[in-house]
Design a protein around this nucleic acid. Structure first.
Lengths: 227, 227
DNA sequence: CGACTTTCTAAAAATCTTCTAAGAATACGC
DNA sequence: GCGTATTCTTAGAAGATTTTTAGAAAGTCG
């Protein structure tokens, strides 16, 4: 597990890096923003976590973070900083940070937060554009695309296919689908779900795509390849 | 975007829930641990985030969190609590929480942390896969696989083979199989079990696998190698 | 061996689930 | 307000699964 640690305070850097190494992490240390940019954006290196100070010489931490996210580098980033004001935290998190720890902090808390972040697979998804198998869904325009074909879905069709595309391998029961698409206080019957599944399958035929909604008899439906 | 909010302090709950709703989230509120368990573990409901108080009536927050993770529910969880001691935070995060926010907190920070967590896709669902001899069973899709062959089982076939694959060396009597597959208040006769054993053996032949269900005359059935 | 019990197999019956189409109700844009 | 698009309801056909039944086959034991 490889960590990029960007911190200009040499003394703090050394103390923290040593404790991280004791836990078995491989640590690359950086002491200014320019150097950090080089490491963070380089294709060759691939870190599991980046620990980022906000106030750095030459290039500041948030700029590095934004640059990473612009290049779609999904590595989890924890911002470590003395700036503990509410607005600073919100800024940091909304720029793409995964966690925000205010100095002074306990290294053991940092370790726990690193563990929490690295439990999950790293990949940022654009929730507006979903892809699964050979399908792409642009939720904003409700446009479902496969190769060079595309169709505009109705609202409910789009909501329904979204559930499938967010978890392409899961079998979704009718009650789950009703709950996710129509909400919980609804009088909608199972038959309505069946109907929309039918509509979507027609769409798939229009698109001539390889994907379809498979029936798991007695259990529900699941996205899958044709045949 | 759907959030389960577990908080026994009604006043706090109301204030926070209202602000979350203003942001467009759909909020389900729970006021005790037992109720929360029901929501959190239910297959039908599927939340995008769970906000969890640690100290709750009946069942405490960490127990709920552990139960969720044991059931491989990957939903991001943020613990909200007055317990801000280092050990408490580390405990919480290591039990499977994704973030830990100490009361009192700013709702705007909570919102930023929710956004940070939901940018990432939910962990690939840890599938319940059973293996025994040369067989693999994916219970979610009821797919029984051996080498490069696979078949989709019916519900009852899948339930029955599950019993065998969970204890591959045990001899299972007909009454035990009936109890495990059909439940305890059932009118099902032994002959029905025999029939399903027959169905499964046909499946094994389709798969050309080395495993089969052996008959222990007068006692029941047991998984074993062919011949 | 022969009487008995147990197990296997196949087919039909019963039940339950899913698919499809068509029409009614509702929402939406002009 | 009218026409169109969307959503919801209904219902029967088609299909899959589960259960029942019954006779053949195989095993046990005096």
């Amino acid at each position: 597990m490889r960590i990029l640690f960007v911190e200009d305070d040499r003394q703090l850097s050394e103390v923290v890096a040593e404790q991280l190494k004791k836990e078995g992490y491989i640590i690359d240390c950086c002491y200014d923003g320019e150097e950090a940019l080089g490491y963070a954006l380089n294709d060759t290196y691939c870190y599991d976590v980046v620990l980022l100070d906000r106030m750095l010489p030459i290039v500041d931490g948030l700029t590095i973070l934004k640059a990473m996210r612009q290049k779609h580098i999904p590595t989890p980033v924890i911002i470590l900083t003395g700036l503990g004001a509410l607005e600073d935290k919100i800024d940091g998190l909304d720029c793409g940070a995964d966690d925000y720890l205010v100095k002074p902090f306990h290294v053991r808390e940092l370790l726990a937060r690193i563990r929490a972040l690295t439990r999950r697979p790293a990949e940022i998804v654009n929730k507006e554009i979903l892809t699964a198998y050979d399908l792409t869904l642009d939720r904003e325009h409700r446009r479902l695309t496969c190769k060079n074909h595309s169709v505009i879905l109705t609202q409910k069709e789009s909501d329904l296919i979204t559930v499938f595309m967010e978890m392409p391998d899961k079998t979704h029961s009718r009650s789950e689908l009703i709950w996710r698409v129509w909400g919980e206080n609804t009088e909608i019957e199972n038959g309505n779900v069946d109907n929309y599944i039918h509509f979507l399958r027609k769409r798939f035929r229009e698109l001539k795509c390889k994907t379809t909604i498979k029936t798991i008899y007695g259990a529900g439906f699941c996205l899958g390849e044709l045949q």
